[in-house]
Design a protein around this nucleic acid. Structure first.
Lengths: 221, 221
DNA sequence: GGTGGCGCTATTGTATACATCTTTTTCAAT
DNA sequence: ATTGAAAAAGATGTATACAATAGCGCCACC
């Protein structure tokens, strides 16, 4: 869903509920009832209904006609598959980017992100509050690549595969210092491959990068 | 969006509009205005709004807050990428199915579809009205595999990648007799590979199968 | 005591009225 | 004539009333 500019109440409600669901506030199977949510969020049922519909399309809720919405159950298998999907999709994205080439401006943007990572590594401080920075750094890297792909489909799919409760929330808490280093080195290799128009390697490195992240998550399933 | 049982007006409207958009009835950029559609389809704005939101999530419409919905423009590149996405996703699906194995019942279902194809080939009548049968046959084959994967994510993504105007509507009209034959043989190879638990080959054949279809479409871009 | 149907209640689906925002048109001033 | 603001028209966003459906408990009946 491509929005632009101002936000409506429906969108705000959708964002709020999405965050709360991803944070694990609602147990799987919990009914999301319109009236209760409307009262809690101080809006009418209309924006609630539209938000719930969006969340269902995102795959976060199950819907049955005349029976409403329930929080979806995600199995360990769902999580594992989501990483394989991401590996395939973002890998494909990297291959396309390498084949078609990036503008100087886009490469500079990636370099800036890489440099930021270099600095974080140099400081070598992995205290709890650093996790947030790494997560944001990682997110901006992947989002930037997706954005450069200029394919609505790729962006949408990658988003779908990243929007899962456990994955979205946790993940980096399980990284050891060497995992951060390795992950960052892979970011470098990905950009290098794209810059050299080596689609094969760009795809391979991105797949390997996401596969590694998936393995760490899978261990803590 | 997982529905079940009865259909609501919102869903009917969404289906109707989806079909009409996929059939190319509305030129890209056309505004989809709620009041006009409501009057045309003899329902209130409410189900129209919900349908439009669904179609936007499907990627068929663009949305801007307070400015409504427009029919999305699909570029030739979008179409090409959609086939590469499908190749990657359905290929992954086949690999998973081969790895985990299918039940006897599921294999029988696939065999039934293959046999139906054998019969169509044997008759060798490629008249215009046969296209519909081939399309349905092909659709049921791919849908069955997706369904067996038991991954909401894979199903959703494959659906996203198949829901494009040109692709959904045409495609088979451009097939020559030998294309039908080759396509059907690939179906056989895919099932054979899955049955033998050869994930590598199952994925390869599915990728090749979709890649070939993509090339035919690309020629007529 | 179990089962099946009936009706009540709670919840969702739809229509419509009202609020807000966007866009167009009008009209005056330069 | 052109530009700009302001008002009016049209469209979307939100709230609410009403309709329809599903879920539940009760009671009769077997």
């Amino acid at each position: 869903m491509s929005d632009q500019d101002s936000r409506t109440r429906s969108q705000s409600v959708a964002d709020t509920l999405r965050e709360r669901i991803l944070a694990g506030e609602f147990a799987p199977g919990t009914r999301m009832q319109e009236i209760a949510l409307a009262e809690e969020l101080h809006v009418s049922r209309t924006p609630i209904r539209e938000a719930l519909r969006s969340l269902a399309e995102d795959g976060l809720l199950d819907y049955a006609a005349n029976r409403g919405y329930r929080v979806r159950q995600f199995t360990a298998r769902d999580i594992v598959i989501s990483f394989r999907v991401r590996a395939a999709m973002e890998g494909l994205g990297c291959r396309l980017l390498a084949e078609q080439g990036l503008t100087e401006q886009q490469l500079q943007r990636l370099d800036a992100i890489l440099q930021h990572g270099d600095e974080l590594l140099a400081n070598g401080d992995y205290a709890a509050n650093e996790y947030a920075q790494w997560r944001e750094l990682n997110r901006s890297f992947h989002v930037a690549l997706l954005k450069f792909s200029e394919s609505v489909l790729l962006k949408k799919i990658a988003r779908d595969a990243m929007t899962l409760p456990i994955v979205n929330h946790g993940a980096f808490h399980w990284y050891r210092p060497e995992d951060f280093r390795r992950s960052h080195e892979q970011h470098h290799m990905i950009v290098k491959s794209i810059r050299e128009h080596d689609g094969e390697r760009a795809e391979w490195w991105m797949r390997e990068h996401i596969r590694a992240a998936g393995e760490i998550v899978a261990k803590h399933l």
